[in-house]
């Protein structure tokens, strides 16, 4: 049962992660803020409530896996992992710096808690397909969570992977599309239309839901009912706001990959402190 107290605790974690994201990208003077802020609620739910994992044992065989297929949103993943205790929070200050284990895009061999190296778009569902298949072959019961961007699934390989997961009945995959309608060059439906998105996934054989990607109860509830649908992979379309939590960054494509200046940084931190 999700108590109001639990939800409040998760909201506070998400707010702290958002502050970390702003701090990291400001310090590195590069990185992807908008999509990271937009995914903070999902990662909070996953790592602080849903997933079975052990920060002290990152390679625990029965842990749930997570793939940040939209690898450019590494700040949200790194901040989440640090707050879980996979590595010290001070490491976040070294994001994108030489000698750091925090590469611009997730690199599993270097960073504790990163399951899969990503960066080039459209690959995560495929890799997750391999991991989910491996779990089936071994009779393991963990789940493979995959987060894709909406612009990302313009890549044809996302749909190759969709076919594969359907063929092998990989019901241990729970995918998410971060549906914020914005990509690097602008509004997704101008750049390369994706709508109607839900029937596309359904036509590829996936059980598909669409929820508010900032409603923590809705996210956790949607994941909780997955086991009652055996034989099918699940795709949860998260309706999200890019830049969520910082008023002047919300729904602005320019915040896809632009670091904040000092004034913007201070205003963003102020907003997230007062929230």
């Amino acid at each position: 049962m999700l108590t109001a107290e639990t939800i409040h605790r998760l909201q506070e974690v998400a707010r702290a992660i958002r502050r970390d994201i702003i701090e990291m990208v400001y310090r590195a003077n590069s990185g992807h803020i908008g999509g990271s802020l937009g995914a903070a609620d999902l990662l909070t739910c996953l790592y602080f409530h849903v997933m079975r994992h052990r920060p002290s044992q990152p390679d625990w065989a029965d842990r749930d896996r997570f793939i940040l297929s939209k690898g450019h949103c590494s700040p949200v993943l790194y901040a989440t992992l640090a707050r879980c205790g996979y590595f010290p929070a001070e490491d976040l200050q070294q994001f994108r710096r030489t000698g750091s284990h925090l590469q611009g895009h997730p690199y599993a061999p270097k960073t504790p808690g990163v399951d899969v190296s990503t960066g080039t778009l459209g690959l995560g569902i495929s890799t997750g397909g391999g991991m989910a298949l491996a779990a089936k072959l071994r009779g393991q019961h963990h789940r493979v969570f995959i987060l894709c961007g909406d612009g990302e699934i313009q890549e044809g390989q996302a749909w190759e992977a969709a076919m594969f997961a359907n063929k092998y009945k990989l019901d241990n995959i729970i995918g998410f599309v971060d549906r914020n309608y914005l990509q690097t060059d602008g509004y997704s439906e101008d750049i390369m239309p994706l709508d109607p998105l839900r029937p596309k996934w359904e036509a590829f054989g996936w059980r598909t839901l669409q929820i508010d990607g900032h409603d923590l109860r809705a996210i956790i509830g949607a994941i909780d009912e997955v086991p009652s649908h055996p034989g099918k992979p699940t795709m949860i379309i998260l309706r999200t706001v890019k830049g969520k939590g910082v008023s002047f960054m919300e729904n602005e494509a320019m915040w896809h990959g632009t670091p904040p200046n000092q004034d913007q940084y201070e205003r963003a931190m102020q907003e997230l402190a007062d929230a």
Partner: peptide
């Protein structure tokens, strides 16, 4: 699906 196949292989190798 050669691209998908390579990544599926990557996922299997990770496991």
């Amino acid at each position: 699906q050669e691209g998908n196949m390579m990544c599926v292989a990557a996922g299997l190798a990770l496991e």
